[in-house]
Design a protein around this nucleic acid. Sequence first.
DNA 1: GGCCAGGACTGACATTTGTCATGTGAGGCC
DNA 2: GGCCTCACATGACAAATGTCAGTCCTGGCC
Lengths: 203, 203
Amino acid sequence: MTAIRVLLADDEHLIRGALAALLALEDDLAVVAEAASGPEALSMARAHRPDVAVLDLQMPGGDGVSVAEALRRELPGCATMIVTGHGRAGHLKRALAAGVRGFLPKTVSAQRLAEVIRTVHGGHRYIDPELAADAISAGDSPLTAREAELLEMAEDGAPINEIAARAGLAAGTVRNYLSSAAAKLGAENRHTAARMARERGWL
Amino acid sequence: MTAIRVLLADDEHLIRGALAALLALEDDLAVVAEAASGPEALSMARAHRPDVAVLDLQMPGGDGVSVAEALRRELPGCATMIVTGHGRAGHLKRALAAGVRGFLPKTVSAQRLAEVIRTVHGGHRYIDPELAADAISAGDSPLTAREAELLEMAEDGAPINEIAARAGLAAGTVRNYLSSAAAKLGAENRHTAARMARERGWL
DNA sequence: GGCCAGGACTGACATTTGTCATGTGAGGCC
DNA sequence: GGCCTCACATGACAAATGTCAGTCCTGGCC
């Protein structure tokens, strides 16, 4: 049997190199390409046509999920999985919609990572149980499209007038959307609301 | 010559295990203990008395710098170094004050990590040049003690009245400190000011 | 001592933000 | 068609926030 060809994408060289070393110990896995950014991951994938792409969620130049989306279109034969740091359960739903078949926190062991690579390569899916529980308990976003859009603009602390101008709306309207969003999230004001929505992956 | 005894503390098993594997390849380095949290790092250090402690900045139960502080008191013979994910140059000054001798981003290679472990074990210091540049360009905090204190309370979006109550000050006073802090940082309001100050390690 | 710089602190005033009542139009349902 | 629900949109009003002018105290300096 020929080894599973793996692409590793993570901007932290230290982790990526170490991971490659660990996976090399498994004789049915072969790391054929490494990348430190979203675009690089894509071009490496085109060049080396891996069986499985292991993507970090946070990378310069586009996050893991958008890379997964692009890969799904360009290389349908390549299975994708996301490995992520703390928390980020909010991205799970988006990731699954993008065709990602594995979703793991970085707190798992290398052993488990190798197992999951085999699992997704076999056509199955594996979602870390704790992340899955988080995502389910967070539930679906109660925000309407407009609310989410304006909340996103409010995220960096811009005053209402600027948001209104950028969105082409009356200031009062913007206030109301943000107020309504805050109410839905149980937040005191738009700033905390924006943080909460971001945490839960609703932005 | 006997190998340098290393303690690894990082809550991401995947990374920690992989790092241990890579460092094991260097025959003058021996990973004698691993930990997944701040308190665990401390107790492992007490038990195994390593020569160098490699600490992640963000861990459950106290960050790397506070662990370094404790280690400096309890095991003065143990050199400490911080390895961190993205950005966080703001913690550099605090880390140096805590006696940390090495400060690196996770984007470096394993090669370099090993070199730096030897460097700090030899009694020297090594700060990643890019992080150093960031920290220097951010400069010293222009905030007074009160301003920083109130800004910290404002960070999670609490209304002014609550902050005033917690601090035992008049609401107007709190408003002015926050306003003054925001002016110093060039921020539009206290929320953005709090974020900026946090990013630069001034809180 | 007299002077100055600057941090801690306060209340009055103007602006910004959040809340409320209300209107419009699109889509599902009987 | 008539009725409902709900997202989108607005302006008036009240509450929270930011700005300003000014007092008090401390410490350095001549």
